[in-house]
Simulated scan of single mutants.
Amino acid sequence: MAYGTQPHIAYQQNSVTTATPEELTLKLYSGCIRFIKLADKAIVEENIQDKNTNIQKAQDIIRELMVTLNMDYDISHQLMPLYEYMHHQLTQANVKNDPSILKEVQGMVEGFRETWQQVIKANKLQTQAR
């Protein structure tokens, strides 16, 4: 099927291509959380293939967050080890089939997403005040 016949795919593509870098980062965090939840569900259902696939997708997102960090900022030097830790923990969750490790990483990513949402909101308010 062409994209024109699948409006949800066209919408998703458009939302990514028109998003600001800040919004893209927010989408990455949300996607990572979604894949972690799917991996957790797969562990419960003993679906090893889906668990592995979804953990790898979450790891891909963490890697993307790592490679796009602007190391000119001090905060990036604080974020990098946290991203490395989350990536490592996802590997451990995959190897050990351990949902508690997934929950730990999910909580960390949710914290990052919440903080990022606050940063976006503060930047919008600051821009409006000018």
Rank of each mutant, 00 (worst) to 15 (best):
K124T: 06
E23S: 11
N54H: 06
Q59W: 07
D50Y: 09
I9H: 01
C32P: 04
Y85F: 13
V67Y: 07
Q49A: 13
A129V: 05
E23H: 12
V105D: 00
E84A: 15
Q49S: 10
A42R: 08
Y29L: 04
S30C: 06
L65W: 06
Q89W: 04
Y29F: 12
V105S: 02
V95N: 12
Y83M: 00
R34I: 04
L65A: 05
D72H: 15
V16W: 11
S76C: 07
N97A: 12
E22A: 08
E104S: 11
Y83F: 05
A129H: 08
D40N: 13
W116T: 03
V95D: 14
V105K: 01
K57N: 11
S100H: 15
A129D: 07
Q118C: 08
A42Q: 04
N70V: 02
A10E: 14
A58E: 03
N123A: 14
P21L: 06
L90G: 03
N123C: 08
Q89L: 10
G107S: 04
K41F: 08
S15A: 13
T17M: 13
L79R: 03
D72L: 08
L82S: 02
Q56V: 07
M66F: 01
N54K: 01
E23V: 07
G107H: 06
P99S: 08
H8W: 08
C32Q: 00
S76M: 05
I62W: 02
K37E: 15
L102Q: 00
D72W: 06
T53D: 09
G111A: 05
A10P: 04
T25V: 12
A10S: 13
P99H: 15
A129W: 05
E64Y: 11
M108N: 14
K96A: 11
T68R: 02
D74Q: 13
L69H: 01
I101M: 06
K103S: 13
Q92F: 00
N123P: 02
V16C: 05
T91Y: 15
R130N: 10
T17V: 11
L38P: 04
M86C: 08
E110Y: 03
E45N: 10
I120E: 00
T68H: 01
I120C: 02
A2S: 13
H87L: 15
L82W: 01
V16M: 13
I75G: 15
H8Y: 10
A122L: 14
D40F: 07
K124P: 00
A122P: 03
T115S: 12
L69K: 03
E22L: 11
A93W: 00
G31C: 01
T53H: 14
D60L: 10
S100P: 07
D50V: 15
V95W: 09
N52F: 15
Q106P: 06
L24C: 04
S100Q: 14
Y83D: 00
I61Q: 00
L28H: 03
S100E: 08
T25Q: 12
C32R: 00
Q56F: 12
Q6R: 10
K41Q: 13
D40R: 12
I36Y: 10
V67M: 07
